[in-house]
Simulated assay, not measured.
Amino acid sequence: MDWLERAAELRQWTRNGTRAPHKPLLLLYALGRFQRDADGELRYSAVEDDLKRLLDEYGPPHRTTPAYPFHHLVSDGVWEVRTDRGPGSPGSGVRELRTLGAAGRLAPELRAALRREPPLLGRMARLLLDLHFPPSLHAELCESVGLEPEPAEPERLSAVVRRRRDPRMRERVLTAYEYRCAFCGYDGRIGALPVGLEAAHVRWWAFGGPDDVDNGLCLCSLHHKLFDKGVLGIERGSPRSWGSPRSSEAESGGEAESGGSHRILVSQRFVGHSPAAREHVTALAGRPLIGPQPGTRPVAAAHCSWHTDQVFHGNPRPAPVS
């Protein structure tokens, strides 16, 4: 049985690029628990809060109860559920899972395969991360679920992950934005090499986002992470909708912008009271993007819309009054 294929083909809601990482998150969590206790099981009432936290932090803006994947993952052949009454899930209702003492764990055949071939766990984890989350979130997500995956061999995964990333995208995007963060203008280098600058996919590669300049942003490491976590977003709209535009010097420390009508969104759910949090996050609300340079395609409206619908959390803050 090819467990990597099973993990790659989890049944999910996929219409119009909708994110539905509920099953992958539960499976990653279960793999992390198996790594620590191969014989243990996950009682729903004991892990419900952990699963809620994972869905809140790494799931789409539209919240779903963790009871949904706890029940439905059984149909993918990698998970089993029993209750105080015996084998079988009582359904996807929170009350039933709690009152009947529902407990889940990896399917017996998968547990046996993981014992026979320990590197399989790392391969499955890496596959789930690559298929459902951007690279900027992989390390912290592993930490959140208690996983310590071993590096997976690319050739073992290439047959399952049938798309290949374009290694030239980073250079193209950084060049388009003249090696400056599109949100804050950071342009640090060590010698001739840029440091702390990354090419961010607006529509995630895992959800069909192309390796094209009009799906990319040059962002510093901080703003890339906040963009992928849904704290920051971008919107293509009339500058008038954000109030009076500020001067380019006020916007970017004296550097000119050419982001047109693309404006930065900051989630109202973000809380930060320090001067640093205000300067680096909340003060960005309503600012135009820095770049791309003239003659380069800006971020496509369809990719902006996908990120706003599937990643950005809550409502945007109004632009600060200057």
Rank of each mutant, 00 (worst) to 15 (best):
A46T: 14
D49M: 14
D50S: 12
D50G: 11
R53Y: 03
L54C: 15
L55V: 04
E57S: 06
Y58V: 04
G59L: 03
G59F: 01
G59V: 06
P60H: 00
P60G: 00
P61C: 12
H62V: 01
H62R: 01
R63P: 14
T65F: 05
A67S: 15
A67D: 03
A67R: 01
F70Q: 00
F70E: 03
H71D: 07
H72Q: 02
H72S: 07
S75Q: 12
S75P: 00
D76L: 07
V78S: 13
E80M: 06
E80G: 07
T83A: 01
D84A: 13
D84P: 09
R85V: 09
G86E: 02
P87L: 08
G88N: 13
G88M: 09
S89Y: 04
S89K: 02
P90K: 00
S92P: 11
G93C: 11
V94D: 05
V94P: 10
V94A: 11
R98D: 12
R98L: 13
T99C: 05
T99P: 01
L100K: 14
G101I: 09
A102I: 10
A102Q: 05
A103V: 08
A103F: 08
R105K: 14
R105M: 06
A107C: 03
P108R: 12
L110D: 04
L110N: 04
R111G: 02
L114S: 05
L114I: 00
R116E: 11
R116D: 12
E117C: 09
E117F: 08
P119D: 10
L121W: 10
L121M: 10
G122K: 03
A125C: 04
R126N: 12
R126K: 04
L127F: 05
L128D: 07
L128G: 01
L129V: 06
L129T: 05
L131G: 01
H132G: 05
F133S: 01
F133I: 05
P135G: 07
S136L: 14
L137E: 06
H138L: 13
A139G: 02
